[in-house]
Amino acid sequence: MKYTDQFDDPNLPGEMVTTVWLREVSTGTDMRITQEGIPAVIPAEMCYLGWQESLDKLMRLVEPEIPDA
């Protein structure tokens, strides 16, 4: 899956391209994500933190919390 996006802020010009690969593996799903065209003023570690936070929220949404009896 590949998609493009851009910021509304004129100080953050250009188009960003995000590519996501999903592949079934024996333990679940392998996911690979690349992002290109991120404005230079955005530190790379912020992108990693953003993805980690998003995936953590997704995990909490789809994995039920089943209390011990």
Rank of each mutant, 00 (worst) to 15 (best):
G14L: 10
W51D: 01
Y3A: 12
A44Q: 11
E65P: 00
K57E: 14
P67F: 09
D5Q: 10
V41Q: 13
T4E: 14
E65G: 05
D56S: 11
D30V: 00
A40S: 14
P64L: 12
M16G: 04
E36K: 11
K2G: 03
I42F: 06
D68P: 04
D30N: 13
Q52E: 12
Y48H: 15
W51I: 08
P13V: 11
W51R: 03
E65I: 14
L49W: 06
G14K: 08
E63T: 13
M31S: 03
L49M: 08
Q6K: 14
L49D: 11
S54P: 00
Y3V: 05
L49F: 07
M31W: 01
C47V: 15
S26T: 10
V20Q: 03
E53K: 13
D30E: 14
S54F: 09
L55Q: 03
E53G: 05
V25A: 03
D56E: 13
R32M: 05
V62L: 11
A44I: 12
L12P: 01
Y3L: 15
Q35V: 10
L58Q: 03
T19L: 07
P13D: 10
T4P: 01
V41N: 04
L49Q: 11
D9N: 14
D8H: 10
D9M: 06
V41T: 08
L61E: 10
R23Q: 05
G14Q: 10
M59I: 04
Y48A: 09
A44M: 06
G28W: 07
I42H: 02
A69I: 15
V25I: 13
R32I: 06
A40E: 15
Q6T: 13
M1N: 07
G50C: 10
M46S: 11
S54W: 06
K57L: 14
L22F: 04
G14A: 08
P67I: 10
G14F: 11
P64N: 04
S26K: 12
Q52G: 08
P10C: 11
M31N: 01
A69C: 07
